[in-house]
């Protein structure tokens, strides 16, 4: 079985995927367009694949959730195009791929950083199907006033998880939600409530 292609233009495609991720984390809950050019093996989505190819390499261990790990082509695709090690231990990963968000593992399983180095924490790339402007109300750095945001599917206790993530600030994980030609960010600095 052939291997799906990577970026047609690694320099510029990486740059534009990075810029989308950067603005996404800088403006939590605001949708940033993400060009869909890849055709990765399912269940890995083109948007999540673009983010991982742009940001991962041999220095960033990657952890796959159960549904992604069940398909060996996903690991093969990521390993070939990024050189990243796929790790079995979630806490060892710098990037985490969640293809089945309704059943995503508890954030506490992933690297939170340390008080001296809070940056040594995991970035979660979470594949979602839809975005909306309601369900969650966001506040904090990057949000002028408040911003309505929503994404589906997410676990039922998602708000409680985000509240707990914020409570540990400056430790915590950062989320990039990818899907439908867009990426949205939920960094650990964001305050989330229902609305």
């Amino acid at each position: 079985m052939g291997l799906a292609l990577g970026f047609a233009d690694p320099v510029f495609d990486s740059q534009s995927a990075f810029r989308a991720a950067m603005w996404a984390l800088a403006r939590p809950g605001r949708l940033e367009p993400l060009a869909v050019t890849l055709d990765p093996p399912a269940p890995l989505s083109p948007e999540a694949a673009a983010l991982l190819l742009a940001l991962c390499d041999f220095e960033t261990p990657v952890w796959l959730d159960a549904s992604a790990a069940a398909v060996p082509e996903v690991a093969r695709f990521l390993r070939f195009h990024t050189g990243a090690r796929i790790v079995a231990e979630p806490g060892a990963a710098r990037f985490v791929l969640i293809t089945d968000p309704a059943r995503m593992a508890d954030f506490a399983e992933f690297a939170q950083g340390t008080p001296d180095y809070p940056d040594i924490s995991a970035t979660l790339v979470v594949q979602v199907e839809r975005f909306s402007a309601s369900g969650l109300v966001l506040e904090g750095p990057g949000v002028p006033g408040v911003r309505g945001f929503g994404a589906q599917p997410l676990p039922a206790d998602f708000i409680a998880r985000m509240v707990a993530n914020r409570a540990g600030f400056p430790l915590g994980v950062d989320l990039l939600l990818a899907g439908a030609g867009h990426v949205a960010g939920l960094p650990r600095s964001v305050m989330v409530r229902e609305g």
């Binding site: 740059q15 940056d119 970035t123 950062d174």
Partner: peptide, 24 residues
């Protein structure tokens, strides 16, 4: 080079997520 850019980009993302913290 691209590897260096990726390393810097990852640092920028963490810097944004923890405003004001100096990422090595």
């Amino acid at each position: 080079d691209e590897q260096t850019k990726r390393m810097i980009r990852r640092a920028i993302l963490k810097a944004i997520a923890v405003p004001g913290y100096q990422v090595p």
